[in-house]
Design a binder for these strands. Structure first.
Length: 806
DNA sequence: GGGTGTCGGATTTTT
DNA sequence: TCCGACACCC
């Protein structure tokens, strides 16, 4: 191990180095916020490979999100030689999926389809209805209860006091999944645990192969995941079979206990993998010192924690401003003012507004629109959760797995073909009787037996119509062909156009276009990397690949110049020059649901802590004296957490009793307080790559006006748009991860042809693909007849069915 | 079976 | 206030 070093540890501080080079036994790294946690994990992996000659196949690194895994992979690639293969770096779920596929002969689940939580909910709802229990327990409750069952969270489970119902439903749920070869997300882990527990041959083979395990965000693990780690690395209780186990975590950032995460797992880790070496990394490279002091001060109020004190050599002063506002509108106003008073060193894209609940965004949107501040809302409905995406995927899934009941029920009447509740009930009954039927055989059966089953003429027509769609949908076709046939033969686009308003239709077809693009991209890659041994079809591979991807791989280029709005939860792991935490009021932060118990309050405090530690340079904390919630105006008490901030680091202003001009000048002078120690030694010496954002030119000059598609205030938009409209139309827009699409407002007078439909513009159609406009004419207000040259020929299409191609 | 009106409920999120 | 689930009517 002490061979001449080719792998440099120079970029690491002493604690980080220690965490990298301790390559045997169990290691617990307590890495504070901003202490270079990812750097430690990635360097450790690179060190194992480059320095200790550990074969990459024997290393496994587990994360919670695909995003974290992706980032790690990218960073490891840069650290190791190009000949080395990458070790497994991925989520718990994807790793389990991989094991289930690889060892399927041992598992008893040879083929399966993964259902997401929405599918799970739909299935549970059907079961509740079947038993007539829907009045007794809510679908959400039963969903949560079933997950608790699997996670052995009996404490939370007992609260329901509906043991019998839960067990009955769970039993049927398990039966249904087995019949349909379905696995939910939890099952992926459960099945692998079963495999370890029941098959000693598998366990031995596994432990012979996998020798180094790393786990990120250990404070977020649930009991199943902790058990999984034990199965992976212990040959018997207390006997470690792996060469090294490295858990990285920070109990102060545990904010997911409500979904089963157990901070106690950090403590259990010390017992279960004893002897454990613990390394604390407390130097923070992110935040200016006053911000860290505030974070330390606040989190020290939590009783249930091991003391830890972050420190930074980024000296500065007066970096935290606490503003008391009269109401939510003034709060948003002040934030907008601060954003327009940024020093040149901070760009809008390096700012974030964090809040406890999504409901708080509405006021921000309204004010930001009026102020012409470009914003992006992060979070919300994810790509693969969207109805239009799930509908098309349901068709694809049925082609792949003709027994997939969930998918059939999803598209039974989508687009509408007169197959309602009655047909659905009969269909389910009949399929229960003839379980071996494929869905096409079942449809055929329903049509031929329609008389006996009490189905009407319109029912059989609908059923035939549905069956007809699948005639040309053969598994031998390419996915993109299938996609196009689905869209055209089911008349899906027409259905969307009929069902939704223009704006929503546009956004939905744009999502379909994105789906098409990701399909094409996948196919291209698949065909390039096709190996002869793998018999897996492109379709099967595609469906498998996206099963665990709720979010498509991000294209955040459009967001770069926008201020980000997100919940405190989604801010975890991110950092910004300027952070606003809004709504520091009792019942908001801490949330009203947490006021009862000390533990819940502590989690809210950690949430505040996570928010504070996102800030690099400036932190603005706001609260309102009154706020409208659910249409009711309420007086709001200051959050208890405000009193926990260190007084001498804080500037307080009472905006509710100040003139606007006073507020403005206060904000300006606060933000003019320049970096007194802009370049910490760390940034100068070790990490030039994290510098650029400080040096970026002020981009406020290019602030763009965006109109949120869901805004319900059209008249108000009009006024501001006329005032703020840039001369040359709008910049290109991109889908945001959240699906909140920042859209250019069409300002062209309705009697002339807008640029996107003018001759030679590139346009996209969900079925025909991309093409070039040949000519266009006005059809009705905001509707144009556009003649387009598509690869397959000229077509004249109503502009509502087209999108500008960007 | 699909459209319209009323009532109630309303943290946080990933896989 | 606002959104979704459900009930009721055509």
């Amino acid at each position: 191990m002490n061979t001449p070093s080719s792998f440099s540890l120079d970029h690491l501080n002493p604690e980080q180095q220690q965490a990298v080079v301790k390559t045997s036994g169990a290691l617990l790294v307590i890495a504070g916020a901003g202490s270079g946690k990812t750097r430690v994990i990635t360097s450790r992996i690179a060190y194992l490979i480059s320095e200790c000659n550990v074969p990459p196949q024997s290393i496994v690194a587990l994360t919670f999100t695909n995003k974290a895994a992706k980032e790690m992979k990218e960073r490891i690639t840069k650290l190791i030689s190009s000949e080395s293969t990458l070790p497994f770096v991925g989520t718990f779920h994807s790793y389990c999926l991989l094991l289930l596929r690889k060892y399927k002969a041992f598992t008893g689940v040879e083929t399966f389809t993964i259902i997401d939580s929405e599918d799970q909910k739909a299935l549970l709802k059907r079961i509740l209805e079947k038993f007539g229990l829907e009045k007794q327990i809510a679908t959400n409750q039963i969903q949560h209860a079933i997950s608790c069952l699997k996670n052995q969270m009996h404490k939370q489970l007992l609260g329901y006091g509906k043991q019998q119902i839960i067990e009955q439903v769970n039993h049927e749920y398990e039966r249904e999944k087995k019949a349909g070869n379905l696995l939910d997300f939890d099952d992926l882990i459960v099945k692998v645990l079963e495999l370890f527990k029941t098959n000693s041959h598998f366990k031995e083979e596994f432990q012979r192969k996998v020798k180094h395990v790393l786990i990120d965000e250990y404070q977020d693990t649930n009991s199943m995941q902790h058990t999984l780690l034990k199965e992976m690395t212990l040959s018997s209780p207390g006997v470690i079979s792996a060469h090294s186990i490295c858990a990285v975590g920070d109990e102060d950032q545990s904010i997911y206990s409500w979904r089963g995460a157990q901070v106690e797992n950090i403590r259990s880790f010390k017992n279960d993998f004893a002897p454990v070496e613990t390394i604390k990394i407390e130097q923070n490279y992110r935040s200016a010192e006053p911000i860290l002091k505030a974070a330390n001060h606040v989190i020290a109020h939590n009783r249930n924690r091991t003391p830890k004190e972050l420190w930074s050599d980024k000296k500065a002063h007066k970096r935290i401003l606490v503003a008391t506002c009269s109401n939510g509108y003034q709060e948003a106003d002040i934030i907008a003012q601060a954003l327009t008073s940024l020093p040149p060193s901070i760009s809008l894209g390096q700012c974030a507004i964090l809040y406890r609940t999504h409901a708080q965004t509405r006021v921000f949107e309204e004010i930001f629109m009026r102020s012409g501040i470009a914003y992006a809302i992060i979070g919300g409905i994810r790509f693969y959760e969207r109805k239009e995406i799930k509908d098309i995927l349901a068709f694809l899934r049925l082609i792949q797995n003709p027994h997939d009941k969930i998918s059939l029920l999803r598209i039974l009447n989508v687009p509408q073909r007169g197959l309602g509740e009655k047909v659905e009930t009969i269909l389910i009954e009949e399929w229960d009787k003839y379980t071996h039927f494929t869905f096409t055989q079942l449809l055929e059966h329903l049509i031929t037996q329609s008389g006996l089953l009490g189905l009407s003429r319109s029912h059989t027509n609908g059923l035939s119509e549905l069956k007809k769609i699948f005639i040309n949908l053969t598994p031998s076709r390419s996915i993109s062909e299938l996609y196009e046939i689905i869209l055209s033969d089911s008349a899906y686009i027409q259905y969307l156009a009929k069902e939704y308003e223009q704006e929503e239709f546009r956004s939905k077809s744009e999502n379909l276009r994105e789906l098409f693009q990701s399909i094409s991209f996948f196919e291209k890659q698949f065909n390039e990397n096709k190996t002869k041994e793998s018999s897996e079809t492109a379709l099967a591979a595609f469906l498998n690949e996206i099963a665990l991807l709720q979010e498509k791989i991000e294209d955040d280029s459009g967001e770069q110049k926008m201020v980000k709005l997100m919940t405190l939860h989604s801010a975890k792991g991110l950092e910004f020059d300027f952070v606003v935490i809004a709504g520091l009021e009792e019942t908001i932060l801490p949330s009203s649901k947490s006021l009862e118990s000390r533990e819940d309050i502590e989690e809210e405090r950690r949430l505040f802590y996570v928010g504070i530690t996102r800030a690099r340079e400036y932190l603005l904390i706001t609260r309102a004296l009154a706020r409208s919630t659910y249409g009711q105006k309420n007086a709001q008490d200051a959050s208890r957490f405000l009193g926990e901030l260190p007084e001498k680091e804080i500037i307080h202003i009472d905006a509710s009793s100040m003139f606007p001009s006073q507020i403005n000048s206060t904000l300006r002078s606060w933000l003019e307080n320049t970096y007194s120690n802009q370049k910490s030694s760390y940034q100068t010496i070790f990490a030039p790559d994290i510098q650029p954002h400080f040096a970026q030119a002020n981009q406020r000059g290019s602030i763009q006006q965006y109109v949120h598609p869901h805004s319900k205030k059209p008249s108000f938009q009009k006024i501001t748009l006329e005032k703020l409209a840039p001369k040359n139309g709008f910049p290109s827009t991109k889908m945001l991860s959240s699906g909140n699409i920042a859209k250019p407002q069409n300002l062209t007078p309705s009697n002339s042809i807008p640029p996107e439909w003018q001759k030679n513009s590139r346009v996209f159609h969900p079925i025909f693909g991309s093409g070039i406009v040949l000519s266009s004419s006005l059809k009705a207000e905001n509707k144009y007849l556009v003649t387009v040259a598509f690869p397959e020929g000229e077509k004249t299409i109503l502009s509502t069915f087209l999108q500008p191609y960007e």
